[in-house]
């Protein structure tokens, strides 16, 4: 039995091969977050490189979702949230009082743990985002492009006007990815996108992630170490609101520097 030693809250994140300033699309700097009095994130700093997949790993409750949702300000929906620090996106601080969270979410899309298509047709699901802004272009083409992007087009091209809820779980999740792509974001956040899916559907989503990183920057939360290994370029390990270590995925998995990272990777806790 390994005793988990306490990690100081002012722990200095162990970094290898840091992301260069000019590569970074999103960079979180000295970011702390409180739910009421409970501090869920402690002074986290991390940069996410363009057209790369970054995996966030860590034990349940360590703040992965919180960190992810801080990037597109979904946490603003929780009334008691308070934050400190900055999240820079294209040289703009997303937490600047002048920035509307609605703008942020148009640039930074999100896919959730449980597939959550609207109870509308497949077409309407994908068209939802563009319609919010009164999309002027060719909506049909955009829907097709997004569905192709999410590797779903061939399966649904004949049933575009059937309910999105009639699809299988894996198809629903790809529909949600297509829906997120249709708003033409830069960054896509994924919070355990495959945890509700079977291995085959999971496999397809992973292939999809590997494909879409040509066009998007992806940040993915996962509990599945193999998945992190398969899809991500960089990995960040968190523990109790602290970012313990981050670096290239190979490095983290084969040669972790911090003891706690090593224990987590090798399955000794978590």
């Amino acid at each position: 039995m390994v005793v988990i030693q306490a990690l100081p809250k002012d722990h200095e994140t162990v970094r290898t091969a840091t992301v260069e300033m000019e590569e970074a699309v999103v960079s979180i700097e000295n970011f702390s977050l409180w739910y009421d009095l409970f501090q869920a994130l402690h002074n986290v700093s991390i940069a996410f490189a363009r057209n790369q997949v970054t995996a966030l790993i860590g034990a349940s409750g360590c703040g992965k979702s919180t960190l992810l949702r801080s990037v597109n300000r979904m946490n603003d929906l929780v009334p008691s949230v308070r934050v400190e620090g900055t999240v820079m996106y294209e040289h703009v601080n997303l937490y600047d009082p002048a920035i509307d969270p609605v703008e942020v979410r148009r640039r930074i899309g999100m896919v959730f743990q449980k597939p959550n298509p609207f109870p509308k047709s497949i077409y309407e699901n994908v068209a939802f985002g563009p319609r919010l802004n009164g999309y002027r272009g060719d909506l049909d083409a955009l829907v097709e492009r997004s569905l192709r992007g999410a590797a779903l087009w061939d399966e649904v091209k004949d049933i575009l006007h059937q309910s999105g809820l009639a699809l299988s779980g894996g198809q629903q999740q790809r529909l949600c990815i297509a829906r997120a792509m249709a708003t033409e974001p830069d960054v896509i956040l994924m919070d355990e996108p495959t945890s509700a899916l079977d291995p085959i559907a999971t496999n397809r989503i992973e292939e999809l992630i590997n494909k879409i990183k040509e066009d998007y920057t992806v940040i993915i939360v996962t509990h599945n170490m193999q998945q992190a290994g398969r899809v991500s370029d960089r990995t960040a390990f968190m523990h109790l609101g602290v970012l313990v270590e981050e670096g290239p995925t190979d490095q983290i998995f084969t040669n972790p520097i911090h003891l706690m990272t090593e224990r987590y990777i090798t399955g000794h806790f978590g």
Partner: peptide, 15 residues
Amino acid sequence: VPGSLREASYGLGAT
């Protein structure tokens, strides 16, 4: 109405 649908909507940039 499930919270997941609201989240989906906000996540797509809805006001």
